[in-house]
């Protein structure tokens, strides 16, 4: 995935969440965004997901300019998959129906095509036994796997993960991280916001360090972790790697 941001700015009231960000990430299979909470990581992801309009600035994904009118935003959202921190499954639908909904309603699959596609993916994530269950009957890890299934079923251009394991206990975390690793190995493009530095290091090839609304430093993940240049990043890594 190619990502380029030009003068991207977003404010909430007086708070400047993204402060005139300009960056060109040439080509990364897996892009990881790290940084302290409240630094603007999630807002950045939401703008790229087409869920939020910036105040000013441009976003290009794979060379394509993102337009912020509703019709084109809808088209954009339909072309990518987003996985949220709190799963965000629809509680009144079964696991299967959760995966079917975008296929049928947003992508024009017929009922039979949609069911076939959905079941194949659920099976792949060892969820076929849970297809008829409602989200409340599933563990957190299972719910997040259904959410990932829902996101990849539509064959997205790329996947966005917003702290996908922050609401999970350690055992379930690895369940979900394994899947993200697998997806990456399959060659799917993904952008991941995470607090798991170890995982970020193994899965990503490019890393952005976002703090105080700016991209303080970015580069290939190995060099960023082994020899950070900026003091903000050194301090951040020092804190999160301590334990």
């Amino acid at each position: 995935m190619q990502l380029s941001l030009t003068n991207l700015t977003k404010t909430y009231g007086r708070h400047r969440v993204l402060d005139d960000i300009t960056i060109d990430v040439p080509d990364a299979k897996a892009l990881v965004v790290i940084g302290p909470s409240g630094g603007g990581k999630t807002t950045l992801l939401r703008i790229i997901a087409g869920l939020e309009r910036p105040d000013s600035g441009q976003v290009h994904t794979d060379g394509e300019l993102l337009h912020f009118d509703e019709a084109r935003l809808l088209k954009h959202r339909r072309s990518i998959g987003v996985v949220f921190q709190s799963f965000n499954l629809f509680p009144h639908l079964t696991a299967l129906e959760n995966v079917l909904l975008p296929l049928e309603q947003a992508h024009g699959y017929s009922r039979t095509e949609a069911i076939e596609t959905a079941l194949t993916i659920l099976k792949r994530f060892q969820l076929d036994g849970h297809a008829a269950k409602k989200p409340a009957q599933l563990s957190g890890g299972q719910q997040q796997r259904v959410a990932i299934a829902r996101a990849i079923a539509i064959k997205p251009r790329f996947l966005l993960f917003d702290e996908p394991t922050s609401a999970l206990d350690p055992e379930m975390t690895s369940e979900v991280l394994d899947i993200i690793g697998e997806l990456r190995d399959e060659g799917r493009d993904l952008l991941l916001v995470t607090h798991h530095m170890g995982f970020a290091r193994t899965v990503a090839d490019h890393c952005l360090f976002v703090a105080a609304g700016k991209i303080i430093e970015h580069g290939p993940v190995e060099s960023l972790f082994t020899e950070p240049h900026r003091t903000e990043l050194q301090q951040f890594l020092g804190k999160v790697m301590r334990y």
């Binding site: 869920l51 987003v82 949220f84 965000n88 009144h92 975008p102 309603q105």
Partner: peptide, 28 residues
């Protein structure tokens, strides 16, 4: 709010969001 967000993220229109996400939960 997260339900609405999720509906937008999977590319439902406003009408579809009401029809498939909001209405069934509201009725219940």
């Amino acid at each position: 709010e997260s339900q609405l967000e999720s509906a937008r993220a999977i590319g439902l229109t406003r009408f579809q969001t009401y029809r498939f996400v909001i209405l069934p939960q509201v009725v219940r």
